[in-house]
């Protein structure tokens, strides 16, 4: 019986070594270690042995079974690995093929510019104020120190709907409305929106465009506060090494009035085509709120002062992104719009 066992072991180990794949090995397992296999048979036939031989023989069978099992499992690991390798090889893909596209849209470039400005000022404690695009002459002009017949009304030829109603020519009426609504309280707002002027559309003019304005009113607001605020704005929008300069200008609703230039972000001030060789780029208009404007809205201009500034997102987008024709913003060519997808930071 012992010899029989040894022969069985040798035979089993040979079969294990010869198994070429997992399935063949599993067949070997069933054949030798299964419930109907020869080892089990041997164990079953132990009953025929004399009682004193049984423990010895039992141990021997177990040793053989153990050895066969271990060898088989070791062989199984190798065969499984081989099987996986074959499977993996067959599953290799061409990783240079394009990925499944994820559709993404993006904001209009003007929205992008406007929200960037909004967010900067929100971080400095400003609120966003909005107002109607069809506006009363009163808020668009009169409340801003532009009475009927004022020569400066020529600066902005307007689309009138009736004698007293027009499409707003700037976002400043939102300032006038906010002041009126706040009834003499301090204000810190940014007003973005669409505006309209009687211009023929060409590369640099559009009868519809956008503006974004800011207004701060409080006790002892000084012109230096305006300068500091604009300087922060310029650095945020156009880079930390931007310098600003103020030039005297005129707006009926501010006194003093200024225009702000920034040092050219392309050449740094040495002169290039972006700054037309001057080293400076005109960005916005600003000034200290005219006392007439404050008084019209019910503010005591002796006690409260303020500053205001306004700019054109189109101009900023044109400068920042090198857009040469303002009409691109309103044509909605997908090849134009989809370029404003990626981040700049």
């Amino acid at each position: 019986m012992e010899a029989q066992l040894q022969a069985l072991k040798t035979e089993a180990l040979e079969k294990i070594a010869a198994a070429a794949n997992v399935k063949e090995l599993n067949d070997v397992r069933v054949a030798y270690l299964g419930k109907k296999g020869p080892i089990t048979d041997l164990l079953k036939s132990m009953g025929k042995l004399p009682a004193e031989e049984r423990p010895k023989m039992g141990a021997l069978v177990n040793v053989v079974r153990e050895e066969v099992t271990t060898t088989l499992e070791e062989r199984m690991v190798i065969l499984e690995e081989e099987a996986i390798n074959i499977k993996l090889q067959s599953e290799t893909i061409d990783i240079t093929l394009p990925g499944r596209p994820v559709r993404t849209g993006n904001p209009h470039p003007l929205t992008r510019v406007i929200e960037e400005i909004e967010d900067l000022f929100i971080s400095m404690g400003y609120e966003i104020a909005e107002g109607p695009e069809v506006e009363k002459d009163y808020y668009n002009f009169e409340a801003l120190n532009l009475p009927k017949g004022h020569p400066a009304r020529d600066m902005q030829d307007s689309f009138y709907i009736t004698e007293d109603i027009l499409l707003r020519t700037h976002t400043s009426p939102v300032q006038a409305r906010t002041m009126e609504a706040k009834g003499g309280e301090p204000i810190k707002i940014i007003c973005p929106g669409k505006v309209y002027r009687r211009d023929n559309d060409d590369a640099t003019h559009s009868h519809q465009f956008t503006q974004i304005e800011g207004l701060v009113i409080g006790e002892d607001i000084r012109m230096s506060d305006l300068k500091g605020t604009l300087s922060v704005f310029a650095k945020k929008m156009f880079g930390n090494d931007r310098e600003i300069r103020l030039r005297p200008s005129f707006f009926p609703f501010t006194e003093p009035s200024v225009e702000m230039d920034i040092s050219c972000f392309k050449c740094g001030g040495t002169g290039c085509n972006v700054c037309k060789k001057t080293g400076w780029i005109e960005i916005l208009g600003a000034g200290m709120v005219h006392p007439n404007v404050l008084e019209m809205a019910g503010y005591d201009s002796k006690r409260l002062t303020g500053f205001a500034f306004g700019m054109g997102p189109e101009r900023i987008a044109m400068l920042k992104y090198g857009v040469e024709d303002i009409r691109h913003f309103y044509t909605n060519d997908v090849r134009f719009l989809s370029q404003f997808q990626r981040t700049e930071v």
């Binding site: 400095m124 301090p186 409080g218 000084r222 230096s224 506060d225 300068k227 500091g228 605020t229 103020l246």
Partner: peptide, 9 residues
């Protein structure tokens, strides 16, 4: 003109 920021509440 110096550059300052507004002192508001």
């Amino acid at each position: 003109i110096p550059a300052t920021l507004p002192e508001t509440e």
